[in-house]
Computed example of a mutant assay.
Amino acid sequence: MPGAIESRLAQLGVTLPDAPTPAANYVPYIRVGGMVHVSGQISSAPDGIITGKLGADMDVEAGAAAARSCAIALLAQCKAACGGDIDRLQRVVKLTGFVNSTGDFTDQPKVINGASDFLVEVLGDAGRHARSAVSAASLPFGVAVEIEAIFLVA
């Protein structure tokens, strides 16, 4: 039987995928005490990665949707770190969001809001977090967004 978080995700029409495997020589997450540090998750959709450059060929709305996809992958990694029980997640502590954007694009916070808003929608106050949203001249594979996270878990 699904727990409270997966039930809320289902209400939103979201099923957590299997946690993505690393694309290089790193681990997807590290648990240190009650904290889970999740490596950067790239923007992706069921048909592949979401590429683009904000301020050039992608608008803020599409960037926010890409950031939302990163948040889903972050939750999938957190679930894996919790042995499959996502209800052990107590709080989102911090997000660091990287936005593939042009030098004159300044709406990185609006893009990363796609992830922040989704986490609050799923977790309520436990989804509110500290955050950074920064520009990157490019990201791996040309993805639009990459986000890493720190979670507090039981």
Rank of each mutant, 00 (worst) to 15 (best):
Q77T: 13
E148T: 15
T102M: 07
P140K: 14
Q77C: 06
V120W: 05
A73T: 08
G52R: 11
N100A: 08
F141V: 10
G124R: 09
I30A: 10
S116M: 06
I147E: 01
A133V: 04
N100V: 11
D104S: 09
K53W: 05
V99Y: 03
V36E: 04
A56F: 12
G142Y: 10
K110Y: 12
S116G: 14
I5N: 02
N25S: 13
A76N: 00
N113W: 00
S44N: 09
V14L: 08
G97R: 08
M1I: 04
I50F: 02
P2G: 03
A137Q: 14
I42V: 10
G40T: 14
S101R: 13
D85N: 07
A115R: 12
H129T: 04
K110M: 11
D117V: 12
I86M: 04
V111R: 14
C70L: 06
G52D: 00
I150W: 02
V92K: 05
I147D: 00
I42T: 04
A23D: 08
C78H: 08
V143F: 03
A19H: 07
P2N: 09
I86E: 01
E146M: 11
V14M: 15
A126M: 10
S7N: 07
V145Q: 03
F151V: 01
I50P: 00
I72D: 00
S7Y: 08
G63N: 04
S132A: 15
F105N: 02
S39I: 07
A71P: 01
I5E: 00
G97L: 03
S138W: 15
A126I: 08
G84C: 11
A126Y: 02
S101N: 05
S39H: 13
P2D: 02
V60M: 01
D59C: 05
P46T: 07
V122N: 03
S69L: 04
V122T: 08
H129R: 10
A144D: 01
K79S: 03
Q90E: 13
Y29I: 07
G142I: 09
R31L: 15
A126H: 11
L89W: 02
V111E: 01
A149C: 02
D59R: 14
G34R: 10
M58E: 06
L89G: 09
A136H: 07
S138T: 13
D85Q: 03
A67M: 07
E6N: 13
G142D: 05
F141N: 06
A62I: 02
A81F: 08
R88P: 03
P109C: 05
S43W: 00
F141M: 10
G83A: 09
V134G: 12
D117I: 08
A62M: 07
R31E: 05
M35N: 15
G40P: 01
G97H: 06
I49L: 12
Q77N: 11
A144T: 13
I112D: 01
R88V: 08
A73M: 03
A154V: 11
L89T: 00
I30Y: 14
G63D: 03
D57N: 12
Q90N: 05
G83Q: 14
K94M: 13
A65M: 10
A56K: 10
G84D: 02
S132G: 14
G55A: 05
L75T: 01
A62Q: 06
K94I: 02
P22E: 13
V134D: 13
E6C: 03
C82Y: 15
G34K: 09
